[in-house]
Design a protein around this nucleic acid. Structure first.
Lengths: 116, 116
DNA sequence: TTCGGCTATCGTCGTTAAACGATTTATAGA
DNA sequence: TCTATAAATCGTTTAACGACGATAGCCGAA
């Protein structure tokens, strides 16, 4: 386990970045695409379109969003494009979640102890 | 390294759930709220409003979204409401990210080996 | 050079999200 | 009872998202 170096967030810019990363995952179709890429040993071109069951233009847009967020990378293989997961891209988000989970242990809240 | 028990996703319902969880994190203001709750030993009522710098109604809406996603819990302390992080709520998302990161190791892609 | 398969982009439409002010509700204390 | 405070809700406006069809660009193969 890492020695958590995060101050649980601080700069607004970090919030923006992390929010953008989370937004990339915030759609079923994009999760499906990521799962597909994770499961596929090689890569796939337009098979993604068929797998997610949406129009080609829609899938292309989702791919663009994932690429813009840095979650996937596209490499051109002549007639098609090969997409792959970008290693480490989601690490900041994982760190954030880890920090939040770690901090959610103590409910030393405003509870008046006698409110049974 | 874990023996991954997750099939990296399968059901569409899972995608929906995970996407909803990610969407809860997909906004800077909400991240700020979560960070504040994580950092605050006790709880806070309207201090959140001041901290995020948005209108009270807007913050209330963000809190509602976080609560609906199960990421936070609100407990009524008479004049105010005490919010706290919900332990374990983000675990499924953390698992997903872990699975994706674990799978992003092999770029055994469509690369034609001779493309320098 | 022409054809055909893949991608990406454009324009559009309907839906959802974000933000605000104003209002309502609930409760503690005067 | 009345008042003040905190939180939620309502109604509205603006912006962003999601999805699609149609179109344009790019190579490989014929």
């Amino acid at each position: 386990m890492y020695m958590l170096s995060y101050p649980i967030l601080a700069k607004a810019a970090d919030d923006e970045r992390l929010a953008a990363l989370a937004k990339a995952l915030a759609h079923p179709a994009r999760l499906k695409i990521l799962a597909l890429l994770a499961r596929t040993p090689g890569c796939i071109g337009g098979d993604i379109v068929q797998a997610v069951g949406l129009a080609q233009s829609t899938v292309s847009e989702h791919l663009r969003i994932l690429k813009a967020a840095g979650v996937i990378e596209g490499q051109i293989d002549p007639p098609r494009v090969c997409y792959a997961l970008a290693p480490g891209a989601l690490a900041p988000l994982a760190e954030l979640i880890g920090a939040l989970e770690a901090a959610s242990g103590d409910p030393a809240c405003c509870v008046t102890p006698d409110n049974t």
